[in-house]
């Protein structure tokens, strides 16, 4: 099978272009969020406050005055989308960070020590892989959040971590099994270093790149999953804006006011796309074997 020179070049350009686009999207969102959270700079981003009701301009379609239109209470949807960004951007980092942390710890110990620790960790992880994880997480978040409105975001995050850690545990263990056989680890053992010290200074740094790649790829997934939680009312309680919840609320105004649901949904998609493209770029850098296999 012949591949023309130009198509190979094209694919490399596309690969780079995609990564650049992903990083650009993420940086743009971060700047937007930073400006919006800093009161003196807020008016640079949005003209209205996210919570100001204005029934005179209710259900206004997108225009220069209201970039994304307004909702049923006349609140500016662009302002609300911007105000929702801090939560929706922070949550993937928190959830994936905690899942990676737990997975790294359990997986490394399981892989390095072996024996009954490994057996136990793997069997529990197997159990978790058999769960319908999204439905389980939603159920946990709803049961815990039922009577605690203020804690719903926290409980949703916890539920996502509960179903998130087994993947990283398996990943870390599989990597450790490989690293354990490498000459530099053998050398460290021969020189009499303690097991904990070897894990800390030789094994974990070697794991980091793989974990970072998968974590970045996972960010977009977690963002979308959490938006489903918010969609069902398991996110921050009103009037705090939540992208997923805005989509749900907007559905009741269809077919007239479509922008109420559409723009928050589109924002989520752009963010998820940013994470996905950046993650795939990272994977190409760290793991050349997977290059072109996307």
């Amino acid at each position: 099978m012949s591949r023309s020179e130009s198509s190979v070049t094209l694919s490399i350009v596309f690969g780079n272009w995609a990564t650049v686009a992903g990083v650009a999207i993420l940086v743009a969102f971060l700047v937007l969020t930073a400006l919006a959270t800093w009161p003196p700079a807020y008016h640079l981003v949005a003209r209205y406050s996210p919570d100001t009701l204005n029934f005179g301009s209710a259900n206004a379609s997108p225009s220069l005055a209201h970039l994304f239109g307004t909702d049923r209470e006349g609140r500016d949807i662009f302002a609300r989308v911007v105000a929702a960004l801090p939560i929706d951007i922070a949550i993937p980092f928190e959830v994936v960070g905690a899942s990676v942390g737990i997975g790294l710890l359990l997986g490394t110990f399981a892989g390095y020590y072996g024996g009954w620790i490994e057996e136990l960790v793997l069997r529990v992880a197997d159990l978790f892989f058999a769960f319908p994880s999204i439905v389980l997480a939603l159920t946990i978040a709803a049961i815990l959040g039922a009577s605690a409105e203020g804690l719903r975001v926290f409980y949703s995050e916890m539920a996502l971590i509960i179903v998130g850690w087994p993947f990283y545990t398996r990943l870390a263990r599989a990597q450790v099994l490989m690293i354990k056989q490498m000459p530099f680890v053998r050398a460290a053992e021969a020189s009499g270093l303690g097991k904990l010290r070897i894990i800390r200074t030789h094994v974990i740094p070697h794991l980091a790149s793989v974990m970072v790649v998968y974590a970045t790829l996972d960010m977009g997934t977690v963002l979308l999953l959490y938006s489903v939680f918010a969609f069902f009312g398991l996110g921050a309680s009103p009037p705090t804006p939540e992208l997923g919840r805005m989509v749900y609320d907007g559905l009741s105004a269809l077919p007239g006011n479509w922008w109420w649901s559409f723009f928050p949904g589109l924002t989520l998609m752009m963010l998820a796309l940013g994470f996905a493209l950046a993650g795939e770029g990272l994977r190409d850098v760290f793991d050349p074997r997977l290059r072109g296999q996307r």
Binding site: M1, R3, S7, V8, F14, L224, S227, V228, W258, A272
Partner: peptide, 28 residues
């Protein structure tokens, strides 16, 4: 059949975009 050809690239771009859309946005 033709890795990195036009069809492959198009399919790749399509599913990367579609995957990133939350389910309710596609439905909407």
């Amino acid at each position: 059949m033709r890795p990195n050809g036009a069809a492959d690239s198009l399919i790749k771009v399509t599913y990367t975009t579609v995957r990133s859309a939350p389910p309710f946005l596609v439905a909407l």
